[in-house]
Amino acid sequence: MKTKNKHAGKKLYKYRFLYLLALPGFVYLIINNYMPMVGLVLAFKNYSFAKGMLHSPWCGIHNFTYLFNSKWAKIMFRNTIGYNLLFLVLGNIFAIFVAILLGEIRSERAKKTYQTLILIPHLVSTVLIGYLVFAFLSYKNGFINMSLLEPLGKEPVNWYTEPKYWPFILTLVQMWRSFGFQSIVYFATIIGFDKSYYEAAVVDGATTWQQISRITLPLLRPTVIILVIMALGRMFASDFGLFYQVPMNTGTLYSATTTIDTFVYRAMMQDHDVGRSLAAGFLQSILGFVVVTIANSVVRKIEPESALY
């Protein structure tokens, strides 16, 4: 025991400068991530601006009971989980598909061009995506109404008043902006595979399809698992910009666009209701944590190599 401690002490000394170098990063995490967690107590308080965070009166779980009594609880959980599952499934299937296609392209120049172009949507802000979507969907001037539906003799559609279109629109926008990046992640994995598998397969006379289904897909499994676990951790989070700025915070669309994040923001900024806003945020964090822990332990049982921690 004593020698072990001594050993550790020696290691500590050996890495002393590395600890020092990394110290600012840890201090930053404490300030930026850990200290605000104290604020989660506000979820159990009736926040008063006059009294501040610490002196506001407690209100037990009232903030939570309200949340579940309102119709928004159902809607925001349904939307958050629903969209995330949709994005997860569609996104990964599509990304793997594109990655495999990319891997098959023989011309290096074409390959590079495709990679460059499909990543572009990943580079721009959600504010800007909101501008782009509006250019397409604006009732009066939008590209779809003016240049697609009108020449076809169809009635223009009031996109920003019909919630029923928005699950498709949001999914489409999300796919558009994220498929490139996800594809590159998979593609990067694919080109790292041992070439000898494929060479052997070719010798055995395997078709392209057989190579994909027998070699590429099984080899991708660990990557898929990691990406899915990470996505599960964010199952209760949503991209605020996608659900707030892209639909331009329009009241009629709330039933299709309210996620936990937009609810939290609106409860805060429109109703000035810090307690309830935080109750929703608190639930979001807790649930995300639980889900990822469960997913990880399941994976650890089935396939220990792929577990995240």
């Binding site: 300030i31 991530n33 200290m35 605000p36 967690m37 604020g39 806003s277």
Partner: peptide
């Protein structure tokens, strides 16, 4: 996995 949310983060910074 965990964050304190908008207002606490604002207050800290």
């Amino acid at each position: 996995l965990f964050n304190g949310g908008m207002i606490p983060s604002y207050i800290v910074w």
